[in-house]
Design a protein around this nucleic acid. Structure first.
Lengths: 124, 124
DNA sequence: GGCTTGCCTAGACGCTTGTCGAAGCAAGAC
DNA sequence: GTCTTGCTTCGACAAGCGTCTAGGCAAGCC
């Protein structure tokens, strides 16, 4: 069995590593985590994330032409991803570069782990 | 009418295991996967998911009182989760029971895996 | 048969979101 | 300095979402 968050219940630790199947998530934690999933809940943002995650870092100037959308719209979606804590941006000279925040992805991945869940499919 | 939620999301049609960091996700796949994340992007639905995932199966009658929301609203959120392919429902006598679909969770977890990503900072 | 309980659907309402064009700011070229 | 390019912010609009009440259907009890 994979080791998991020990019973020390620090809110950050819970938000970070406790699978949602381990126990019912409390309202406060749900409010913190939901925006991260929500940010991924748009096809454009999912593709943006994927493009950024596929390379060490990505220039907005390479992101925008991949979509049939205006610059401001892409910029808006990138801001949503930034606000959700999924990516970081940095201006270097003329261009702005985006980079994923791996710890955020590890968090979400850990939340989705159902390996510790009561057997729903086999018990039925 | 234990209608099995129709395959709004056809799991088999999705590249089931390719992490989004492995390569840029194509638009078609993004359109299929985004609704699953979107469904988790609401605090109420996240808590519902967590409650359902914490036990083999869960009766709506136990779900509803945990929230300060009307029955129809909970029912609506459950339908969103059902349409996203994250849960299954079944009527047995008087009550309706919900159950997670583990394969959907495994798929989302796999998508979020960034261990194969080009080192933006983790291996740098 | 009629009544009650459990859940879903329908319709409506206000807030949020995705999109755009216009305008603004920062960096570099001239 | 001025001009151009890259990106973001602003303001607006339509579409979508979350919530409610009202109503409907199925199952079980009398």
């Amino acid at each position: 069995m994979p080791k998991q968050a020990l019973p020390v219940v620090d809110l950050d630790a819970v938000a970070c590593c406790s699978p949602i199947a381990a126990r019912p998530m409390d309202a406060a934690q749900a409010v913190v985590v939901a925006p991260m999933f929500k940010a991924l809940g748009d096809p454009v943002r999912l593709r943006l994330m994927s493009m950024i995650a596929s390379v060490p870092e990505m220039c907005v100037c390479d992101l925008t032409p991949a979509f049939d959308l205006s610059g401001p719209t892409i910029s808006h979606h990138l801001k949503v991803l930034r606000d959700a804590g999924l990516v970081d941006s940095e201006r270097r000279g003329t261009w702005v570069w985006y980079r994923v925040k791996p710890e955020a992805f590890r968090q979400l991945g850990a939340l989705l782990d159902i390996s510790t869940a009561p057997a729903a499919d086999s018990a039925a």
